[in-house]
């Protein structure tokens, strides 16, 4: 049997480690100080699982929902598709006009090329503005939905 008082480490080991400490336990039976120390730990840590669980008072998934919607939307991005299409058509037109060497396709008149640039720019700008407006409305709707759910 241990004659000196138990160390704090030994007291905690008896309470929390649930191993066989027969030598120490024998001391505890005769020592009020160590016994009380053990009881204090037991009393404090008893039924701790009944403690109220902290809870979040906000919607933890909101950014994830927005992020996942963005990913879905990015799968087919209409303005990028349109830009690529117009670029491809413009490039094809240029290549054909170069290869045909002023035979069938002529771009001599400058008013045609000017209007081509203006129209293409106009269309691209319109599409981009529409896309910005649509994505803004979608985000607002998504946020509203999330807050309504919450």
């Amino acid at each position: 049997m241990k004659n000196s008082h138990l160390l704090e480490e030994e007291i905690q080991a008896i309470v929390f480690e649930q191993k066989d400490f027969s030598g120490l336990n024998e001391h505890v039976q005769y020592c009020n100080r160590c016994k009380n120390s053990i009881e204090a730990y037991k009393l404090m840590f008893k039924d701790l699982e009944d403690f109220p669980q902290p809870m979040f008072d906000f919607h933890v998934q909101a950014p994830v929902k927005m992020y996942s919607q963005k990913i879905i939307r990015n799968h087919f991005h209409f303005p990028i598709f349109l830009t690529a299409l117009l670029g491809f058509l413009g490039l094809s037109f240029g290549v054909i006009s170069y290869l045909s060497n002023n035979k069938s396709v002529k771009l001599e008149s400058t008013w045609l090329s000017t209007w081509l640039v203006i129209c293409t720019g106009g269309i691209l700008l319109t599409v981009l503005v529409i896309d910005v407006v649509i994505s803004y409305e979608k985000k607002i709707k998504a946020l509203n939905r999330i807050f309504m759910q919450h």
């Binding site: 979040f56 906000f58 933890v60 998934q61 909101a62 950014p63 994830v64 992020y67 996942s68």
Partner: peptide, 9 residues
């Protein structure tokens, strides 16, 4: 917390 779940996702 929102960052935690966004990173997990």
């Amino acid at each position: 917390v929102q960052d935690v779940y966004l990173n997990a996702y």
